[in-house]
Computed example of a mutant assay.
Amino acid sequence: MTGPLVAPPSLLRRPALFLDLDGVLAPLAPTPDAVVPDERRTAVLRSVSARFEGRVAIVSGRTLAEVDRISEGVLPAASGVHGLERRRADGTLTTGAVDPAVGPVVDAFRTFAADRPGMIVEDKTVAAGLHFRGAQDQAGAATDLAERLADETGLILQPGNLVVELKTPGTDKGTALTAFMAELPFQGAVPVMLGDDLTDEHGFQAAEALGGFGVLVGPERITSARYRLSDVAAVLDWLETVSEAPE
């Protein structure tokens, strides 16, 4: 980023849209479970997917089950847990092997959270998350613990928005986007990745490498994205405009 980022264009030539969930399609909530389906979001996703012949996928750190719960399963193509779970547009599913270190990390996170009110531990089977949105004074201690466990286990440390995560190595949102782009109906399209936090930078970089671009959602920061939208409402407004514009 060399200057203030402007809003992305609304006229796109054969785009493929890759959308993060939390902070992009849904506002951040006090707990992961507090994010629920939304009538407008579901309608927008249905509309834009129809407009671009299925070239729309949610690419999230959440599990696919959570992605489907929140999006009401409106999109056939989706990726969860930073690419460790990926459902192709034809419905076939690929899931990364579970690193045996994930279970002990979940236990360590639960021990850490036990006497720290507001901490939330998330067991994603192939990854473990430690949310400190409700205990932000514990951010440093949570990060220190995650860094130590990453060194001990070889799991990948993935910082996020008020969360640290340790995941099975091998994938990220960029590898998920790249895999989608090699398949129908995404093949030959221009990838556009919308994301809000550090986990989305891999997606921005992959989209750029394949001739597309990234869109940062939220405050300005150093990023690989070329454009920016201010918040979830602005994302939904933009998606509505894109879905109605000529291609």
Results as ranks from 00 to 15, higher is better:
M1E: 13
T2Q: 13
T2S: 13
T2N: 14
G3D: 13
A7Y: 05
L11K: 08
L12K: 05
L12A: 10
L12G: 05
R13D: 13
A16H: 03
L17S: 04
F18W: 05
D20C: 04
D20E: 04
L21W: 01
L21C: 08
G23S: 06
V24P: 02
P27V: 10
P27L: 08
A29W: 13
P30G: 10
P30F: 11
V35A: 12
V36R: 15
E39L: 12
R40L: 13
R41I: 06
R41Y: 08
T42A: 14
T42W: 09
L45E: 00
R46E: 11
R46W: 02
S47I: 00
V48E: 00
F52P: 00
V56S: 03
I58P: 01
R62M: 07
T63W: 01
T63F: 02
R69A: 11
R69Q: 07
S71M: 08
E72H: 04
A78G: 04
S79D: 06
G80Q: 07
H82C: 02
R87L: 09
R88A: 15
D90Q: 06
G91T: 05
T92Q: 12
T94D: 14
V98R: 15
P100M: 13
V102E: 09
G103C: 08
P104M: 11
V106K: 03
A108V: 08
A108T: 06
F109S: 04
F112S: 08
A113R: 10
R116S: 07
M119Q: 10
I120K: 00
I120V: 15
V121S: 07
K124Y: 07
T125V: 15
T125K: 14
T125A: 15
V126S: 09
V126W: 01
L130A: 05
L130S: 03
R133M: 06
G134R: 09
A135K: 03
Q138S: 15
A141I: 04
E147I: 12
E147S: 13
R148C: 09
L149G: 03
A150V: 12
G154Q: 11
P159T: 11
G160D: 08
G160H: 04
T168Y: 11
G170V: 04
T171V: 07
T171H: 13
K173V: 09
G174S: 08
L177W: 10
T178H: 09
T178V: 05
M181V: 06
A182L: 11
E183G: 03
L184V: 12
L184E: 14
P185K: 05
F186T: 02
G188I: 12
A189I: 04
P191W: 09
M193F: 15
D197L: 04
L198I: 13
L198W: 10
L198H: 12
T199N: 06
E201Y: 08
H202A: 15
H202T: 13
F204M: 07
F204W: 05
Q205H: 05
A206E: 07
A209H: 11
A209S: 14
A209T: 11
G211A: 11
G212M: 07
G212F: 11
G214W: 06
V215L: 09
V215N: 03
L216I: 05
L216S: 02
R221S: 10
S224I: 00
A225D: 02
R226Q: 15
Y227S: 10
R228A: 03
R228W: 04
L229G: 08
S230E: 15
D231C: 09
A233H: 13
V235P: 02
V235Y: 06
L236G: 05
E240Y: 02
E240V: 04
E240D: 14
S243I: 06
E244V: 03
P246I: 08
